[in-house]
């Protein structure tokens, strides 16, 4: 631990503060994740660790590396930015997947207004599809003669075109 002895005390206190802050937030997030009752509550807990939990540890790591190397070491920021950008994406995807799965099962976890809004939409879509189907069923009678005529015309053209 000889390389740590060169750090001035004020900087050491600052580094220690950020490290303790970050790791405590990660621990609290994990505690919440293990203890909360429903999935939709649990999805909030890891964001503690990914917002200021990660930020605290990264700031401390940057401060320490910058002092020890004598130049601004900021490559930890890449990890920080990466976590800030990717964690929302995974959480949104997971949230949507969970909502989708719970909806198809009519899970009691979802309140009525979330289910009804979706049911109305599905119903409207089914009605639109049925309408389109009905229209498609009504149309072939008008459509088929046209296709036949087109085929006849094409065959006729081939017949007339082949000899020449």
């Amino acid at each position: 631990m000889s390389h740590l002895e060169t750090i001035p005390v004020w900087l050491a206190v600052l580094i220690a503060f950020f490290v303790v802050l970050g790791s405590t937030l990660v621990l609290l997030g994990a505690l919440g994740f293990a203890r909360l009752a429903s999935f939709y509550d649990r999805i909030h807990a890891p964001t503690l660790g990914t917002s200021w939990g990660t930020a605290g540890i990264i700031i401390a790591s940057m401060l320490m590396a910058s002092y020890l190397e004598g130049r601004a070491v900021i490559h930890e920021l890449v990890i920080g930015i990466f976590v800030m950008l990717t964690v929302p994406v995974t959480l949104i995807l997971l949230g949507r997947a969970a909502l989708h799965r719970d909806r198809t099962e009519n899970s009691p976890l979802l309140p009525e207004h979330v289910l009804t809004a979706h049911r109305k939409k599905v119903q409207a879509e089914a009605e639109a599809a049925a309408e389109a189907e009905a229209r498609a069923e009504a149309e072939p009678e008008q459509k088929l003669p046209v296709e036949d005529a087109a085929e006849d015309a094409a065959e006729g053209r081939n017949e007339t075109g082949a000899p020449s």
Binding site: H44, S51, P88, I92, A98, L99, V114, A117
Partner: peptide
């Protein structure tokens, strides 16, 4: 907006319906 709301602890963006512009948000 989705990234902001999800990265902030306490709110989670669950679904956005682009036809109606309706957002389903879960609040802790």
């Amino acid at each position: 907006l989705a990234c902001i709301l999800t990265a902030t602890p306490g709110t989670a963006w669950l679904e956005y319906d682009s036809d109606e512009g309706m957002l389903t948000l879960h609040v802790f």
